[in-house]
Design a protein around this nucleic acid. Structure first.
Length: 497
RNA sequence: GGCGCAUUCGUCUAGUGGUUAGGACGCGAGAUUCUCAUUCUCGAAACAGGGGUUCAAUUCCCCUAUGCGCUACCA
């Protein structure tokens, strides 16, 4: 039988980093075993689901490169089927109508209310303690026919336990008396999560459910539904969670944009780098390699090597340099400086485009220049954004001078104000504007002035690139070319700033 | 409150009944260099605590602590 897995986010926000990893693991597993990767949008919570979230999630998945193998399933479209399943169980006596009026949660915190109620029921009320559980079929039908509202609850057996073998956590069981007679259908006949998930997974022919560990206890309830429906449950694999520093839950409200996938896309991350980073959060191949292509991940992935303990996504919102996990940033930089240049170019192009720095010549007669330049500057960049910010001076005459660089590399050596334009004059006579002659000329010039070579080079760097850091200065001269180098060396703009 | 899951350097992790407990990020030092980055070398840094079992436990068992999850007519 062909393996079919699904990623099933609920559209109540953007694509969360934890969800993204769940999608990744589902995708890797499907590809590894040659199965299908499906997508289902769980939009049954009408109050919280938004189309905007759905779009954001779809965008995030598209960015990561996980296209579903079949049409997207919208859970809300299946509500009639869910309802029919619940009614069937009702008919078979595996579920019952609960005429208890819906409790009003009021304005209390929902979590607190749950704990409070659980504590009150402690030892005084069993999970099967519902006056309508054993109501005769005739009585139940009659009250329903009279129009009295009711919820449909699953009739969980008194004795026994559910058990399943989780691919990550091993054998798990739970006693029936720990599980309430869960509601399948609300009194407004709206199907609830556990029912909807089971019905849809059956309908979609899902063979392996790979999802967050927060569903570990739900699984027992879902197995009960599978059993009532007379369907063999799929295989389950629960993933450890991704937490915020301090082991707290990672949430949009508290941690903001850092948990959203689109943040990384917009910050200039490469999807390949981020996938690589995500893959190593909660899974490892058991070797010392850190950089994996998607193909390698697919080849090496296995559910058995997924961890059982939660991982912390490390960052410091008070430190701009640590705005997100160090390792994610490092990995992105590693990809930028080591990936085949040809693969990087399209990303740089689109970054320059959006910064209005792109020129069509880069694709044409200046192609070679563009490649050389990108290759030269990429070694010290962390994100694609750096190409348009730190790298701006290579692509435009309109760039700013970093005051610190001007101070440290120029103003500290006033002689440079006349020397550098003088050097520019010498450049005029240099026909072969390449490394060796350039180096010879600049070092001769430095010697003649009795200056350290570094002083000349650093001054030129500040003038030509606006910043104090960058590639070897001779390479910068070469890449910028004779005309632009001379022009910038003569410019007094930086000196007057 | 109940039930469940988890716990190796700051973080991501490898690993084993007997190991100098390995790697990566980050951090520190050094080398290289016209700056910075890269690269290279070196360094500091961990088995949550307490009981067992055993000749021997980081590894197996129990307890405690801590964290997380579920406990909804949310998903």
């Amino acid at each position: 039988m062909i393996t079919r897995v699904r990623f099933a986010p609920s559209p109540t926000g953007y694509l969360h980093i934890g969800s993204a990893r769940t999608a990744l693991f589902n995708y890797l597993y499907a590809r590894h075993v040659g199965g299908k990767f499906l997508l289902r949008i769980e939009d049954t919570d009408i109050a919280r689901s938004t189309d905007e979230s759905t779009q954001s999630i779809l965008q995030g998945l598209a960015w990561l490169g996980f296209a579903p193998d079949e049409e997207i399933v919208y859970q809300s479209n299946n509500a009639p089927k869910h309802r029919a399943a619940a009614l069937k169980l009702l008919e078979e006596g595996k579920a019952y109508r609960d005429f208890t009026p819906k409790a009003d949660p009021g304005d209390r915190n929902i979590k607190e209310a749950i704990v409070e109620r659980a504590r009150a029921n402690q030892g005084v009320k069993s999970m099967r303690d519902n006056e309508y559980r054993e109501l005769s079929k005739e009585m139940s039908d009659a009250r329903a026919a009279a129009g009295e509202p009711f919820a449909v609850r699953l009739k969980v057996p008194h004795d026994g336990k559910t058990s399943f073998e989780d691919a990550v956590y091993g054998p798990l069981e739970r006693d029936y008396n720990e599980i309430e007679d869960l509601v399948l259908l609300r009194s407004d006949s709206h199907p609830l999560y556990n029912l909807a998930v089971v019905c849809d997974d059956i309908e979609m022919g899902i063979t392996d459910v790979i999802r967050g560990q927060d569903h570990l206890t739900n699984t027992h309830k879902q197995i009960l539904i599978y059993e009532a429906l007379g369907v063999k449950p799929p295989r389950f694999a629960h993933l450890p969670l991704i937490l915020a520093p301090g082991g707290k839950k990672l949430s949009k409200r508290i941690h903001g944009e850092i948990v959203s996938m689109t943040t990384y896309r917009d910050a200039g991350f490469l999807a390949a780098a981020f996938r690589n980073f995500l893959a190593l959060l909660g899974w490892s191949a058991g070797e010392e390699q850190e950089i994996y292509s998607l193909d390698e991940l697919v080849e090496k992935f296995s559910l058995e090597r997924i961890h059982q303990s939660n991982a912390t996504f490390n960052f410091d919102s008070n430190n701009p340099r640590r705005w997100t996990d160090d390792k994610a940033i490092w990995m992105n930089a590693e990809y930028i400086r080591t990936m085949p240049l040809g693969e990087l170019l399209p990303f740089v192009k689109s970054e320059l485009r959006s910064a209005k720095l792109w020129r069509d010549e880069y694709d044409d007669e200046d192609r070679e220049w563009f490649e050389t330049t990108v290759d030269l500057i990429r070694a010290r960049f962390f994100t694609l954004k750096d190409f348009s910010s730190q790298g701006r001076a290579y692509f435009s005459e309109d760039f700013d001078f970093d005051p610190a660089a001007v101070e440290k590399n120029l103003k500290k050596f006033p002689d440079l104000k006349t020397w550098l334009p003088e050097l520019a004059e010498r450049f005029e006579s240099l026909d072969d504007f390449t490394h060796d002659p350039l180096y010879a000329m600049v070092s001769a010039f430095a010697e003649e002035k009795g200056a350290k070579l570094g002083v000349i080079m650093n001054g030129a760097r500040a003038l030509l690139s606006g910043v104090a850091v960058g590639p070897s200065m001779i390479s910068v001269f070469e890449v910028l070319g004779k005309g632009r180098s001379i022009m910038r060396l003569k410019s007094q703009v930086a000196w007057n700033s």
